[in-house]
Design a protein around this nucleic acid. Structure first.
Lengths: 215, 215
DNA sequence: TTGAAAATACCAAAAAACCCGTAGATTAAA
DNA sequence: TTTAATCTACGGGTTTTTTGGTATTTTCAA
């Protein structure tokens, strides 16, 4: 597939200068690149795209950035520049995060421990409009485990509110006073919460809520 | 301090090839290095040290490695080669982890988002037998926050056991049956747990335990 | 405007948790 | 071999949660 060097415009959004240096060493070996556009913050890349001076073919996008989440950034990039292929480039190996990035418009997902050859292959595939993953990501996606299936129940605004207050150790009566409703109402919310989480009591409820980062 | 390029032997233990590439681009700009010794696993570096062919002046040590924890590795390195200066090179920005690395013999701690110049300065300082931190690490160490002080209460074996079972949603009676003790005993454990965590009820207890990753 | 979802509310009883204090037996460390 | 910590256990009480069924009012989107 790789006959000779293609000329592409590539950008990197990553707050790790070392990583950027590494990419600058590797990428020119495989691609013809005038220069790699580097960005340390999400906002700076967005501003660059808005100027529309150079169309970007591929952007390697870190998820953990100082200013905003890579998930949100991904959506914004895709809206501003739909032809740009976004490759998430991250240390996060959680299935949920990978899928969320794809949902947000990413064309692939690479873990930062990829080898140089793997990285190049993935960029190639992305340029061919294929979806692409590094080896380890493929394995993560392959093992669709059960725990992922018990996805977080959808809670109403009030339920989330009550859940947080339960986590703070407040009793139903205290919560009721604070929210200006009847304690009986809180009891109902409580019951619905436990039903949604399939929890036997608050202890189990809090453990699940905690794992799902809802409190 | 930097009059002219020093000749040093430097090693990198990191499972991210990209990072290694980046270092290979940056370090030769400041130091005279024959070649940077690269290791992707902890065990391979240990084996290298055992051969004692080349004395290593400085090693940049990632904490998250495929085979073993950087903390343990750090101790082993220091025992095998006491003159080697170890610089932790990691993404972890938790105060506790930084201190643990120092406790294990590291001469400094750098976050992976350091700039090239900062990295070079730190290596310089390490070579001068000084302890050294990247800017962000200094700030982390400076803000000795209160939350760190309310360290995790020391739980007895039995208490940890009971805590886990509470998290599973079991009642005191169920736990008592499972552990072949009186329910009253479990109630006592429960009470002591809540006292140690300064929690008003199980909900608050579970939240704290969850945050401290005890369940 | 008309449903469906959400938030509100009640009753009553059983179960569990929480709060006091106290204290013997068993381990493990000094 | 003492001490200190841990595990065990009790009584007696109050408070809170949990369970089960039911039902009215708001709110929001189709």
């Amino acid at each position: 597939m790789l006959v000779n060097k293609q000329t592409i415009n590539i950008a990197v959004v990553d707050d790790h200068p070392i990583v950027i240096e590494g990419l600058q060493k590797i990428l020119p070996q495989a691609f013809s690149i005038t220069d790699i556009k580097e960005f340390v913050t999400g906002i700076s890349f967005i501003n660059f795209l808005k100027e529309k001076l150079v169309p970007i073919d591929v952007v390697l996008l870190d998820i953990t950035l100082p200013d905003r989440s890579g998930i949100d950034l991904c959506k914004e990039i895709k809206l501003l520049s739909p032809t740009t292929r976004i490759l998430a480039f991250s240390n996060h190996n959680e299935r949920s995060i990978i899928l969320e990035m794809l949902q947000s418009g990413a064309s692939g997902y690479l873990l930062k421990n990829v080898s140089a050859t793997e990285l190049i292959t993935c960029i190639q595939e992305a340029l061919n409009n294929e979806i692409t993953f590094s080896q380890e990501v493929k394995e993560i996606l392959a093992r669709a485990d059960v725990s992922a299936l018990k996805q977080l129940p959808s809670l109403t605004r009030r339920e989330k509110e009550v859940l947080k207050m339960i986590a703070e150790g407040k009793t139903s009566i205290e919560i009721a006073k604070e929210l200006f409703v009847s304690p009986l109402t809180i009891e109902t919310h409580r019951r619905n919460l436990m039903q949604k989480f399939d929890a036997k009591n608050v202890a189990a409820l809090m453990k699940l809520a905690s794992e799902l980062k809802l409190v």
